[in-house]
């Protein structure tokens, strides 16, 4: 199982701070596709992704137990 985290505008679009999905073996790009087409969370397309708190590319393959976070464009400072 994998925990998927949403923040800021993406959290509001998802209506949840996090969801659980089994996406072991899938790529981040595939997960973005699923979230946007099946769950209508299309802001993931403009978001960066992090696995276990490190930024990753769309090609990254998700492993069992990984925590995936989608990071919309940041605006700290």
């Amino acid at each position: 199982m994998n925990q998927i985290l949403f923040f800021a505008g993406l959290r509001e679009q998802a209506g949840e701070e996090s969801i659980e999905l089994d996406v072991n073996g899938r790529s981040i790009g595939e997960l973005k596709q699923t979230l946007s087409s099946r769950y209508a969370i299309d802001k993931v397309k403009e978001s960066m992704a992090a696995v276990n708190e490190e930024f990753v590319q769309d090609e990254e393959i998700i492993k069992e137990g990984d925590t995936i976070a989608f990071i919309p464009p940041v605006s700290g400072g």
């Binding site: 505008g9 509001e12 919309p72 940041v74 605006s75």
Partner: peptide, 30 residues
């Protein structure tokens, strides 16, 4: 340090105005 914060640190701000609110940072790409 401040320039890098604005690039790589996962922090977001939401502006609240008299006539609405908006997460900053999400409009440029979308």
């Amino acid at each position: 340090a401040i320039e890098r914060i604005k690039e790589i640190v996962p922090i977001w701000k939401k502006e609240h105005w008299e006539d609405g609110e908006h997460w900053i940072g999400d409009q440029k790409e979308t």
